[in-house]
Design a protein around this nucleic acid. Structure first.
Length: 179
DNA sequence: TGCCTGATTGCCT
DNA sequence: GGCAATCAGGCAA
């Protein structure tokens, strides 16, 4: 939960054959282990959720509704389930490549949703379990810390434990998915 | 093996 | 504002 707040403002970068795409995290949601029915890890460790129980700093990517990939960052120590869903990014690098992948020109719609940002950056299921300190996907602090206000709300798009205030976003930022 | 659910998006009315 | 698209994983049989 603190980690979800701390990730706001961090830079996510992905490098592949098409170049590097990167963006600043402007919206996150925390998913806990025990007691959080909305979390994929709620039913215990399985082949898919294994990475959530692994060491922090790794990517957990899953497919939702058969068409969209969602990027999570594992934050709890090994053996404890806990991850943060990255819901929206403000594009900073590789913007032309993001526009090409998304097929649109509007900057604020390139990555203002969990399915959109993975598509814009070329992140798929294959990246699940990747070490975010080594790449090709990395997460690091911005070169210049920007001032921003953090707002909290209930989580979006889920049916279980939906009332918990575990969504964090930059107040007033136009790249946030809703709000 | 087969059914069903889902942390979404975008197209259609 | 409503709803279809589309598939991996979890669970029952």
């Amino acid at each position: 939960m603190e980690a979800a707040r701390a990730l706001l403002g961090k830079i996510v970068a992905h490098t592949d054959a098409h170049g590097t795409t990167a963006g600043r995290i402007v919206e996150t949601e925390a998913y806990l282990g025990a007691g959080d029915l909305a979390a994929h890890s709620a039913r215990g460790e399985t082949p898919r959720t294994k990475v959530i129980f692994g060491p922090p700093g790794h990517a957990y990517v899953y497919l939702i509704y058969g068409m969209y990939d969602c990027l999570n960052i594992v934050v709890e120590p090994e053996g404890v389930a806990g991850c943060v869903l990255v819901r929206a990014l403000e594009p900073t690098d590789g913007i032309d490549e993001m526009k090409r992948r998304r097929g649109i020109e509007k900057l604020e719609e390139l990555a203002n949703g969990p399915g959109k940002l993975t598509r814009a950056m070329g992140i798929t299921l294959r990246h699940s379990g990747a070490d975010l300190t080594r790449g090709p996907i990395t997460v690091h602090p911005p070169e210049r810390e920007a001032e921003f206000a953090i707002a909290v709300s209930r989580r979006i798009g889920i049916t279980k434990s939906a009332d918990l205030p575990l969504r964090f976003y930059m107040k007033g930022n136009r790249f946030v998915s809703r709000g």
